[in-house]
Design a protein around this nucleic acid. Structure first.
Lengths: 136, 136
DNA sequence: ATAATCTTTGCAATCGAGTTGCACTAAAAG
DNA sequence: CTTTTAGTGCAACTCGATTGCAAAGATTAT
């Protein structure tokens, strides 16, 4: 497992106090985090600083963003060697009753044949409905 | 083609002035409409009335909502016999440069095998990137 | 038909995620 | 050490979505 410093160095992002704690937090979580999640976890760090940090991380492929249907963009650290291709991604299932998001790791996203000269940057596949707990 | 009155009767939604004009507008458009689109088109109808009308329509399966990556929820009239299954839907391609949304009618969404006892209500497949015009 | 009740509508206000301007501080370059 | 560039914190703002409330309209019971 890489340290925050190593990751930032590899991705050519200058290391700062805010960047280190944000990245560390993301690495410590098993679920993708929203700006609000991070803000709540890091009580003494300003929201806009976290926001700009996330933008910087995203531009430099340190993290990628996910639309999971909850209405809030979530962020997760890219796996080693991740180039944010859709093949790295999976479906998200958002339960409209309990507001939980499930990652459907077992269901792979098929290759999408885009029209001529379209360039894919990101794919968000959100499935909404009732989870096993709420479907009664 | 059904009239607004027929559709509302079939879906058991009481007919009102606002509901008729909103539904008529949606029927007349070839593209899915955002709340703002409808608001602009119907100058003398209040936004919150349109909003509540859309919620009522959605609950009663008169229309379905679409997240197309633009950040605004869009609405489209359900086809006759549509039960808002994902099989009725298609991918949306959102160009991050020119902010246009393209419906990829030719690329069908494969059947998604959900985990045991999960109930699917809606699926939004959004692909982001550069369209043929911006990819130069 | 009339009163009581429920629904719909319009307006204004609010919410919340995201974003930006600006001044201050810290780090890098000269 | 001075100049320049980058990062941070605070407050304010944007904008889509949503809600409280009172007036208007429709429905039901008397």
């Amino acid at each position: 497992m890489q340290t925050e410093e190593e990751i930032l160095k590899i991705k050519k992002v200058k290391n700062t106090a805010v960047r280190t704690v944000v990245l560390r937090h993301l690495l410590n979580q098993e679920k993708a985090q929203s700006l609000k999640d991070i803000e709540n976890a890091l009580a003494y760090t300003d929201r806009s600083s976290i926001f700009r940090t996330l933008k910087t991380f995203e531009e430099n492929k340190v993290i990628h963003s996910i639309e999971d249907g909850s209405g809030m963009t979530k962020y997760a650290v890219c796996a080693e060697g991740c180039n944010c291709d859709p093949k790295d991604l999976h479906y998200h299932f958002y339960c409209t009753n309990c507001d939980k998001t499930f990652c459907l790791f077992d269901v792979l996203i098929p290759k999408i044949q885009l029209p001529e000269n379209f360039k894919l940057q990101q794919a968000n596949m959100v499935v909404k409905g009732l989870c096993n707990n709420c479907n009664k």
